[in-house]
Amino acid sequence: MWETLTGILGPAEWQAVRLSLRVSFWATFLSLPFGILVAYLLARGNFPGKQLLNGVVHLPLILPPVVTGYLLLLGFGRRGPIGGFLETVFGIVLSFRWTGAALAAAVMAFPLMVRAVRLAIEAVDPRLEQAAGTLGASRIWVFVTVTLPLILPGIIAGAVLAFAKAMGEFGATITFVSNIPGQTQTIPSAIYSFLQVPGGTEAAGRLVAVSVVIAMAALLLSEILARRVARRVAGT
């Protein structure tokens, strides 16, 4: 299958597809634990600043993506406070690298992931968690043995949604890490570039087709997984 794909796609297009998959995978994978934590805090927590956290998490959803990208550049660029720290202490550079594209994609996809997981947590009967507590489980154990298995379908749904969003992220990515072939040129950036040059429509069309296929496949996979998990969880 890979040969057929690489045969159909030109090397530049193939590069963009591979880069997009890599960026989206890491964006989803690394933000998932934070997404679950934030969703849990928002669903079950009761602390000052909860509304503020809620607002900050949802900000990328309502801000223009270019603004989010610019804010990332300010904060995580080499001269930015966080970017500078990461570079001097850990040697991690984000600006104009694929890692930065992953960060931009993760930030943009975060609200969708949190929302899906939060809804799943809110659907869990807190009396079950209470029962687990009386049986000797500490809060962390209650979460691991009761809450987490029960919200697994929601986590899968949130992860797939975040992956799809990451695959399609354009505005924040191009602002933060630009559009460098092989480094930061994801599928949407590549489509945009192809459309800027004469005769690029065909390559753009092929990438559009690939995007559609990946999106549909992800959706289908998540439906199947979520249904299977839901059945197992409900015990029917």
């Binding site: 079950l128 029962a131 009386t134 049986l135 298995p149 409900a234």
Partner: peptide, 13 residues
């Protein structure tokens, strides 16, 4: 404790 609730509150999963 051994707490027996009014609704059984068994873990469905």
């Amino acid at each position: 404790l051994g707490y027996i609730f009014q609704e059984a509150r068994l873990f469905p999963h």
